[in-house]
């Protein structure tokens, strides 16, 4: 099901992780920044575009629309996508580790 989407971009991956709890724009930015220890900086325009297409795919939905600061949350389908992506990353990681350990 998810094969046609994989691999996710770093930005989309962190946005999906961030939305396991409801967050708005700034919250997503902070989350990606903190989790990656400052490596992944997501611009507001980039997040906006990603959120629009993730909503279309139904991987995320708006959460409690009060006021203008919209929050979003991940859907079950979105969680499914994340699981598959983590499996894919595990494979990449294992193979890389395996080769590196042989080198030593």
């Amino acid at each position: 099901m998810s094969d046609e989407y994989a691999p996710l971009t770093e930005g989309v991956y962190y946005i999906l992780l961030a939305l396991y709890e409801p967050r708005h724009g700034y919250g997503i930015m902070q989350f990606a920044d903190d989790m990656s220890r400052g490596r992944v900086k997501l611009g507001a325009g980039t997040i906006y575009g990603a959120i629009k297409s993730l909503q279309k795919k139904k991987w995320i939905v708006p959460y409690d629309e009060d006021g203008r600061k919209k929050e979003y949350i991940i859907t079950d389908l979105g969680k499914e996508i994340v699981k598959k992506e983590v499996e894919r990353l595990k494979e990449l990681y294992k193979n890389g580790q395996h080769l590196l350990s042989q080198e030593e």
Binding site: H24, G25, Y26, I28, M29, A44, G45, I47, Y48, I51, R68, K69, K70
Partner: peptide, 11 residues
């Protein structure tokens, strides 16, 4: 929508 989002992202 875009402007609201920018504001929610600290812009």
């Amino acid at each position: 929508d875009y402007l609201d989002f920018l504001e929610s992202a600290g812009v």
